[in-house]
């Protein structure tokens, strides 16, 4: 009997699903080796198909997407129960990713923005909020509840392995798929629980080929404000690059396109908080010893919090932006 494979998308953009298909001919090996039992993005499956399975029936579940709604959480728990190995696949499931930028606000503010203040709303549909239960002539309609805070998969269920990246690079997915097939076919031992698969053990700076000098930064630039030199370290040129606080594995993809690393592979090994690491890295290279000047230089970074936690807000130490203390009082 073939090992069973499930893929699910929770709160995600679908990019991870595309990344899986992007492994090209290797997808045939996957389809050949595995019995795909649940993959709603690609094939027609119903939740009741999964509910009917015995516990632990699925060999491997690749779960992408963050946990935003009650439906996401239900599926996470359901698939966890039905799976032997649960993998948080992609940055959303691993650390919240772009959906977790909603953690800068709360449910109330998000609803106000979408259902009251959005300029595309028609006058008649303003102030109409989604209800979890609606009575219709045909019966009751139920839609998932929207949580206040976006969570990563491991904040909801037990996760065995992580595959970082937004989306994970296809070369890395191929390596993971081959390793999994090798383990299942030849009875090789599984890696220790909690291992980060399909990524390196260093920072992006290790993969970057640009020339580095002694860094001294007087001003930070946004990408549109400067034409970067393609051979020099972007940070040396004052462009915020998350390289020093990001795990290697993508082969410095963005940096090769003259863009600062955005940090989608998450914090490097033994780093708890990507944003804090970035504060540490940048504090070392700001060229000033005067507190006021230091502050002015830092202020040239547009939205440090959103930039440093673009992918890791849900998994950061604070998980979310706290309410302003004055507001509380």
């Amino acid at each position: 009997m073939k090992p069973k494979l499930a893929l699910y998308w929770a709160s995600s953009c679908g990019g991870c699903e595309i990344a899986v298909v992007d492994i090209e001919a290797k997808i045939l090996d996957v389809a050949d080796f595995f019995d795909i039992v649940f993959w709603p993005c690609i094939m027609d499956f119903k939740y009741k198909d999964v509910e009917a399975m015995p516990d632990g029936d699925i060999t491997l579940t690749l779960f992408n997407g963050a946990i935003r709604t009650s439906e996401n959480e239900y599926l996470a728990k359901l698939l966890r129960a039905k799976s032997k190995v649960m993998v948080a696949f992609g940055s959303c499931a691993y650390e919240g990713c772009i959906p977790a930028l909603a953690n800068f606000y709360d449910k109330k503010k998000i609803f106000e923005c979408n259902y009251i203040n959005s300029p595309s709303l028609q006058e008649s549909s303003k102030n109409v909020f989604p209800q979890t239960h609606t009575q219709m002539p045909e019966g009751e309609i139920e839609i998932p509840e929207f949580w206040n805070t976006v969570k990563s998969l491991d904040q909801v269920v037990d996760v065995d392995y992580y595959v970082p990246g937004c989306p994970p690079q296809s070369t890395q997915i191929i390596a993971v798929v081959e390793a999994v097939i090798d383990i299942l076919k030849n009875g090789k031992p599984l890696p220790p629980k909690g291992t980060i698969l399909g990524a390196g053990e260093k920072t992006i700076c290790e993969e970057c080929t640009r020339e580095r000098k002694e860094k001294k930064i007087k001003k930070f630039y946004r990408p549109q404000e400067i034409i970067p030199n393609p051979d020099e370290c972007l940070l040396d040129q004052g462009i915020v690059c998350m390289g020093p606080a990001t795990r290697s594995g993508c082969d410095a993809l963005c940096i090769k396109a003259n863009m600062g690393c955005r940090g989608c592979y998450g914090p490097p090994p033994n780093v708890l908080d990507q944003g804090a690491k970035m504060v540490s890295a940048l504090s070392s290279v700001i060229d000033s010893t005067d507190p006021k000047e230091v502050r002015d230089i830092i202020k040239t970074i547009a939205d440090p919090l959103g930039t440093f936690y673009r992918f890791s807000m849900a998994h950061s130490i604070f998980h979310r932006v706290q309410k302003m203390e004055e507001e509380e009082k």
Binding site: D273, A276, S316, I317
Partner: peptide, 8 residues
């Protein structure tokens, strides 16, 4: 003192 010590 790493910034993460302070946040933690």
């Amino acid at each position: 003192v790493d910034p993460s010590f302070i946040l933690k």
